[in-house]
């Protein structure tokens, strides 16, 4: 079934075809959300929101891009909104926790020296994801899609609606920033 036919049938509320779309793209959406959220439960909740959005806004989709590109775009936007909402809630929760998160990167790295190798990787990944999360939004999107989703620059440029050279530059700057953050953490120890 072609993308156009699939979309037309979903527009006509064909539940079987919608199930077919969910089955085909569920893994893609879930893993994209997880690349940004780093949490399985949150990624599942957000992928549900992504498919609800697909179902309710299918009329607006003109089919100019591939379905996968459209799904990636919704997944990225929903995940970033979720992160933003969580950050806002955290600010309201307590000022203390805000200070804690600022110090956490260094604390996490300190813990690396104290614990076993098994948990060391877990802590390394926490440090790494925190550093990625602190990147400017466009750099974070381009870097995450490239490194965690192994996407080509062309695909990323279609999802982000920017040129390929912009994607290259965003990823280059993301790497530089990431390196700076990581080196600072290592130096403090």
């Amino acid at each position: 079934m072609s993308d156009k036919e699939l979309l037309d049938r979903i527009r006509n509320k064909d539940k079987d075809v919608f199930k077919h779309l969910v089955d085909n793209y569920n893994s893609l959406v879930l893993n994209t959300c997880n690349s940004f959220l780093h949490n399985f439960e949150d990624a599942q909740d957000i992928s549900q929101e992504v498919f609800i959005e697909v179902y309710s806004s299918i009329e607006k989709f003109r089919g100019e891009s591939k379905i996968s590109t459209w799904l990636y775009r919704i997944s990225v936007n929903k995940s970033l909104n979720h992160i933003r909402k969580n950050k806002r809630n955290a600010i309201f929760k307590s000022f203390e926790s805000m200070i804690k998160t600022q110090k956490q990167e260094v604390e996490n790295f300190n813990d690396l020296n104290e614990n076993e190798n098994n948990s060391a990787n877990e802590k390394r990944s926490r440090v790494l994801y925190k550093a990625i999360d602190s990147l400017p939004q466009n750099q974070k999107i381009a870097f995450t899609l490239s490194k965690l989703e192994s996407m080509k620059y062309k695909e990323i440029s279609e999802i982000m609606n920017v040129s390929i050279s912009s994607v290259e530059s965003l990823i280059f700057r993301a790497k530089k920033n990431l390196q700076k953050k990581l080196v600072n953490i290592y130096k403090e120890n």
């Binding site: 569920n26 893993n31 990624a43 992928s47 990787n121 440090v127 790494l128 390196q179």
Partner: peptide, 30 residues
Amino acid sequence: SIFNEMNKTYSILNNVEQLNPNPFFYTRLS
């Protein structure tokens, strides 16, 4: 030592596990 630590940390990105969707995902969604 900075290089070794960065290498270990950065290589985590190359070994990210692919998640499998919940089998009841569609039921909940519908």
